[in-house]
Design a protein around this nucleic acid. Structure first.
Ligand code: FES
Ligand code: FES
Lengths: 132, 132
DNA sequence: TTTAATGATACCACCGTAGTATCATTTGTC
DNA sequence: GACAAATGATACTACGGTGGTATCATTAAA
């Protein structure tokens, strides 16, 4: 079980790198020079971040990406949601009448507790808080 | 992202049901009468639990399963490990020299914290503690 | 005009989860 | 002993998500 998929991880690392260079514009090529990972994948990831409104982009020569939202305001949990969907560990898998409990189910309660703890942390981490 | 797979969920629910009837022996058919889920899957799940040493089994007519380890000592985390592998959310996905940090990486640190919290909970929950 | 960059999109491979199928073995009951 | 009811063992298929690739169009600086 992995909390972050590769995609999210790529995104976080890219953003951290970019934050280190901000407000300078950074291209995919720049990123690949330091983070050695599959180029087309990186591109896709950046495009996703751009579409989601985190990054501004400039086409053409000397183009690249820069922050539209400052690193202090980019929250880890939002990145997870963007690339993996919402963190909800506790959905009952049997909701079609099999489960009598549902609201009182102690198993769900435990899982929801864990989920809340995790979310609390994930929502308090920003890209800025990660760069040290 | 789901913390428990269906398989684990089945197992937990089956064990809770069985604990309610203990020390009576329970057959797959009994379980299916109350928990309506795919029969072959349930069977496989029970066999896994038996092989893992949680359950005793008796073949033949009036056969079925009973506890070898008491419900108080069956820990949720162990069931997760059995059916899904160890809960380790924090393995760095880039360990092949890409990551300079690794031991100091703040991202890993956050995730490891969450993992520890989750594990703490999962290790404190037993089948017995779930039946109320 | 060339070249370096992104935008958009479609595609493929692998693997884990979920679920199915089959046959062998044991054991109580008539 | 024959039958039925149960588990043991194991092999197989289907689907979806993750990870990764490929292509072509568009923009803009030099
Ligand atoms: S297991 Fe589904 S609500 Fe309890
Ligand atoms: S992201 Fe791999 S150790 Fe920091």
């Amino acid at each position: 079980m992995n909390l972050l998929t590769r995609n999210t991880d790529y995104a976080v690392r890219a953003l951290i790198y970019m934050a280190g260079k901000a407000p300078e514009r950074v291209s995919t090529a720049d990123l690949l020079r330091d983070l050695r990972l599959p180029r087309p994948f990186m591109r896709k990831t950046l495009q996703t971040l751009q579409k989601a409104g985190y990054l501004d982009s400039v086409k053409g020569k000397n183009g690249g990406f820069s922050f539209l939202i400052s690193p202090e305001k980019i929250v880890l949990n939002d990145l997870i949601v963007l690339f993996q969907g919402p963190v909800s560990m506790g959905d009952c898998l049997f909701r079609k009448k099999v489960c009598s409990c549902m609201r009182t189910c102690p198993l769900r309660k435990e899982i929801k507790t864990i989920e809340s703890l995790a979310l609390g942390h994930l929502r308090s981490v920003t890209v800025a808080s990660l760069m040290r």
